[in-house]
Design a protein around this nucleic acid. Structure first.
Lengths: 253, 253
DNA sequence: AGCATATAACCTGTCATACAGGTTTGTATA
DNA sequence: TATACAAACCTGTATGACAGGTTATATGCT
């Protein structure tokens, strides 16, 4: 659905794999409708929560059937650009990590990328979010991060609860970066974490090994509380060293 | 469309903004159909290019109308998970950066994030791809990178051509990282580059300023050719320092 | 047997119509 | 002013029909 719009197809060629619609010919009406909506959002300078015209209104304006418009809205919704629901007016949606999460999940399932490759990207991102959090966190954010780190230790006998705090710790750090793009990217890893975390945890056979994991999380929180970007980065890096090792031990590629 | 599937809704709660369908109730048939397709891909262990059942087949199997299935396929296509087209059988698609690019474009247009924030994420990613390229590049890849860097200088009087090589240089570096997720993420920045590159370039008023830009690109290529990860990272960092400054000079936030 | 062509089967894209059911807005009343 | 109800609006689903492109199979020729 997302296609290269005519207005953007300057002599600068996009450096991604060839676009299927370019290879196979004209844009479908659905694709055109999709662009009409995104153009509307841009031209009207709409913000999150602002109303959009309904399916029917757009269909009338564009001279297409309602079915075409529905499909365009469906695609926009799939990409989380708009929010639609039975009986409700369509609105501009806040970005969330779900589109990227879905892509990642699919890419891993179809053997395009490995979990370890995702983890390399994840490490790259999260080292940076740790640094930014140490530089930009509010006191409340630092406390929240520390709370989740300690809660992991408190609940280490209950994997599900501990894992929840693990998630929330990473998320809180990304939020404390004060760049929501980082936060959404980090959020997009959570599906894969849901699958790999239990496997990795199962490879930590001794209380000592498990304690090291907890200590690493606490060290990250400590560095952020201390506003020490360097320490935060090193602590997060150590955490990922361990995490990747556990994945390898679990046979995850 | 992408929704939390029932099988994944363990007691581990996803740490992203609340899912609209969870707030508003049951999944639509389209959402269910979407998941049926993604499940099919996973269970059958399909790979890129493998055939999928047609709209009609899925509709029959799932007991839904073809219209529902069309919408589900449309959503899957929007996210680049499958490839569909008039007369052709549906197939599993290779990930490309287009879904993420669309998200980024939308987020910037709706003032959710700023171009500078995207550039911070971009810098984070591209410092890492420079390092990986220095470590993992093939000779052919190193030559390609150098070719594009030199071509930028050769064509500095023709902005469009120079910018094309600029794009391709960044893309080639990401490809040389040998982690396609990095490559796709880098690819997803190209739309925003299309818009911001001319603006930034226009702020470089003297031949000297423009030469510095070219030298920075060449320095990156040199470091990668020399298999020097540290130099590659520093060179890319300098490049971004200049790039961000140019954006600021251009009044881009 | 190999190649070219025609045909059949298959597939997506679009439109129109109808109905179900939920949400939001406007109006009337206490 | 607050509440209740009705009207208007909106999405979700189904069905049937037609247009037109792609792919697989059958047939004919060398």
């Amino acid at each position: 659905m997302p296609v290269r719009s005519a207005t953007k197809k300057s002599n600068i060629v996009r450096v991604s794999p060839e676009d299927a619609s370019a290879v196979h010919g004209a844009q479908t009406l659905v694709q055109k409708a999709f662009l009409a909506v995104t153009n509307h959002i841009r031209v009207e300078k709409l913000k999150v929560g602002d109303r959009l015209p309904s399916e029917k209104s757009f269909a009338d304006m564009l001279g297409v059937s309602r079915a075409v418009m529905r499909e365009a809205f469906g695609a926009l919704s799939a990409l989380r650009l708009i929010d639609v629901g039975n009986g409700r007016v369509p609105r501009v949606r806040a970005m969330d990590g779900l589109a990227l999460a879905t892509s990642l999940d699919h890419a891993v399932n179809t053997a395009q990328i490995t979990v370890l490759q995702v983890w390399d990207v994840r490490r790259t991102i999260e080292l940076r979010t740790a640094v930014l959090a140490a530089e930009h966190r509010t006191d409340a954010e630092a406390e929240k991060i520390m709370y989740h780190a300690k809660a992991m230790r408190t609940h280490r006998k209950d994997f599900a609860v501990m894992a929840q705090h693990d998630f929330e710790l990473h998320h809180a750090i990304a939020q404390a970066s004060h760049n929501i793009l980082f936060a959404q990217v980090v959020s997009s890893f959570s599906d894969l974490m849901t699958v790999s975390l239990p496997l990795a945890w199962a490879t930590r056979n001794t209380a000592k090994e498990r304690t090291v994991v907890l200590e690493r999380h606490e060290a990250i929180a400590e560095a952020i509380a201390n506003k020490d970007p360097e320490a935060a980065m090193l602590a997060m890096d150590s955490h990922f060293d361990g995490s990747v090792q556990n994945l390898l031990n679990a046979g995850i590629k």
